[in-house]
């Protein structure tokens, strides 16, 4: 059973998750008429910057986060920014988009100079997230768990981060049992996406260098 405190915790996180989104106009820009590779590059860079700012605003609302040591807060955000960005953008691809939008977005990313070897794993990840048909609460909690990963580089007080992450994992575990009674493996599958996300973010550094070269 989800306790009252856990309900309140979930509500705080879900509200913050919905409140802090990429500005609509920026997301729409991605769908407008054809841009050159350079313009695509600038647009995606601008989007990435905005996603980091949105991530920080969301993270400030995670109960307990601001009580952590300031440098640990920065280490957690720096360590999770790319993963949180892919997780968030995966939901854009899995949400029922008006017909054609997903194709336009996919085309846009394919034409932005990112080499093929990185695009395939990225879209595979988007597909595997889409297949889970995650609820909003699950997306918000999974993003929070990604951010509160204790073993990020430069984190000094890993136990403090672990305690926070554990509370969120417990809520998500219960939520998955309640919302997916016929899928006992659902929680494990969600966590499995986090490992896939880590490999994707290892690609990301190489992706950036190859992008600059192109």
């Amino acid at each position: 059973e989800i306790t009252k405190e856990q309900q309140a915790l979930m509500k705080v996180i879900l509200d913050a998750y919905n409140r802090h989104q990429i500005p609509q106009d920026m997301a729409k820009k991605l769908l407008q008429d054809q841009y050159s590779a350079e313009e695509n590059f600038l647009l995606l860079t601008e989007m990435a910057t905005s996603q980091v700012q949105v991530l920080v605003e969301f993270t400030k609302n995670i109960p307990g986060f601001l009580t952590l040591d300031r440098e640990d807060q920065i280490a957690l955000l720096k360590g999770s920014a790319v993963e949180a960005m892919f997780l968030r953008s995966a939901q854009v691809f899995s949400r029922k988009m008006p017909n054609g939008h997903t194709e336009v977005l996919e085309e846009r990313i394919r034409k932005s100079g990112i080499s093929e070897e990185f695009i395939t794993p990225m879209f595979n990840f988007y597909k595997s997230i889409g297949e889970l048909h995650m609820m909003q609460e699950e997306q918000a909690l999974l993003t929070t768990i990604t951010i509160l990963t204790p073993d990020r580089p430069y984190v000094k007080d890993q136990q403090a981060v672990e305690r926070l992450q554990e509370t969120i994992l417990d809520v998500l575990r219960k939520l998955c049992v309640l919302q997916h009674p016929q899928e006992p493996q659902y929680f494990a599958r969600l966590l499995g996406r986090l490992t896939e996300l880590r490999t994707l973010s290892h690609y990301h550094a190489e992706m950036l260098t190859s992008w600059r070269v192109n």
Binding site: L42, T45, E46, A48, T49, V52, Q53, V56, E57, K60, R70, Q73, I74, L77, K78, A81
Partner: peptide
Amino acid sequence: PASNLGLEDIIRKALMGNLEE
């Protein structure tokens, strides 16, 4: 503009809450 700041700078600025600077 924010987009040519490094990742850490963007994070520090946003954490400090003075994005408008």
